[in-house]
Simulated assay, not measured.
Amino acid sequence: MEVFAQFLDRIDHPGHRERTEEVLSWVRNNYPNLAPIMAWNQPMFTDHDTYIIGFSTAKQHLAVAPERAGMVHFADEIVQAGYDHTNLLVRIKWNSPVDYSLLQKMIEFNIMDKADCSTFWRK
């Protein structure tokens, strides 16, 4: 997780830093085949050089970005989890639990859906 060390060090709030590190470590531990990278100043995970999932932080939340296709595919489950969202990301408030089963589904969907993808983003 050294690749994310500088990013994590820049998170001033200790609880936010701890939560972000927890989520990134969970992805790394559960999906060791995914490559952790920093791109656009955000931690991301890739598979065969194609984007699988990315994260960012804000004052009120941790954002999870599974790409638009992932957002569409899991729209109902995102709402059921009680998460605020946009067309491109899910906002997990710092004081809300992380729905790891939903995160797992998003990651596995992208791994399978992008198995033959030769570009970073879907076209």
Rank of each mutant, 00 (worst) to 15 (best):
V3M: 09
A5I: 01
A5H: 09
A5P: 02
D9H: 07
R10D: 06
P14F: 00
H16D: 07
H16I: 00
R19G: 01
T20Y: 02
E22I: 01
V23I: 13
V23L: 07
L24G: 04
S25H: 13
S25Q: 15
S25A: 15
R28N: 07
R28I: 12
N30W: 05
Y31T: 04
N33M: 09
P36N: 05
P36R: 01
I37N: 09
I37S: 05
W40S: 13
W40F: 09
W40K: 12
N41E: 12
Q42I: 14
Q42F: 03
P43Y: 06
P43G: 04
T46I: 05
D47N: 11
H48Q: 04
H48L: 01
T50C: 13
Y51I: 12
I52Q: 00
G54T: 06
K59A: 15
A63R: 10
V64T: 03
R68F: 08
R68N: 03
A69M: 04
G70L: 08
V72D: 14
E77Y: 01
I78D: 03
I78W: 08
V79H: 07
A81N: 11
G82I: 14
Y83Q: 06
H85N: 13
H85A: 14
T86K: 04
N87A: 10
N87H: 07
L88Y: 04
L89I: 14
V90F: 00
V90S: 01
R91A: 13
R91K: 15
K93T: 08
N95E: 15
P97S: 13
P97D: 14
V98W: 06
D99G: 08
Y100G: 07
S101P: 01
S101H: 08
S101A: 11
L103A: 09
L103W: 01
Q104G: 05
Q104M: 03
K105I: 12
M106I: 14
M106G: 08
E108G: 05
F109K: 07
N110F: 00
I111K: 11
M112W: 03
M112Y: 04
D113K: 14
D113W: 11
D113F: 14
K114I: 11
D116K: 10
D116E: 13
C117S: 07
T119I: 09
F120E: 10
W121M: 14
W121S: 11
